[in-house]
Design a protein around this nucleic acid. Sequence first.
DNA 1: TTCCTGAATT
DNA 2: AATTCGGGAA
Length: 223
Amino acid sequence: MKNSIKDFYDRTFAHYGDLKWWPAKNPFEVAVGAILTQNTSWKNVEKALKNLRDEDRLSPQAILRAPIYALTESIRPSGYFNQKALRLKAFVEWFDDELDCEFASPDTISTAELRNKLLALKGIGPETADDILLYAFKRPVFVVDAYTYRIAVRHDWAPPLAGYDELAEVFRSNLEEDLFIYQNFHAILVEIGKNFCIKKSPKCDSCPAGKCPDFEGAREFSE
DNA sequence: TTCCTGAATT
DNA sequence: AATTCGGGAA
């Protein structure tokens, strides 16, 4: 039926195809990018990643041995650099201690347990944890972010007060549990959220998703 | 000036 | 519930 989540995915997938997310060379860079992109445009994260790469600091061992102040300078363009340097360090130390710097398979540790361990780290909240689970550990978890929330509310898929888990459940219950669909759906939501379903003055007329219930009103999004 | 693929603190 | 962290681009 129209305006269903499944129909939305089918239409947008026909337009975008496989977006091949997450944009990173390897799973470790996915995790680093996930932390650096918290409330930050990807453009700025790319600058930070380039600095890390140019300075040979984009590996677990390099980050383990780098002093915080050095990390801070490398990632400065991504913003919140003081916090993120600590968060990056904390994550890699855990990744080394707990997993020996390897992305564990499901029979070693369950997705639920892994998620709890990630959430226990300072600086890893539900979105960052799920990004890492979905794109680095390849676990089928549905990622919710600001774009997901905005698009869902504008489609009346969820109430404006919906919390993270509630919103994730709305999507899970309307899709088959499939790694590729979860990975690509989130990629599509980001693409549409960034380019069309933007916060103010959304470009509904050219949106690849077609008309959502908010189209006629073209009202601006408010939280 | 606003906004950006959030999370912790108060 | 409100504030804090932040450079970069529009």
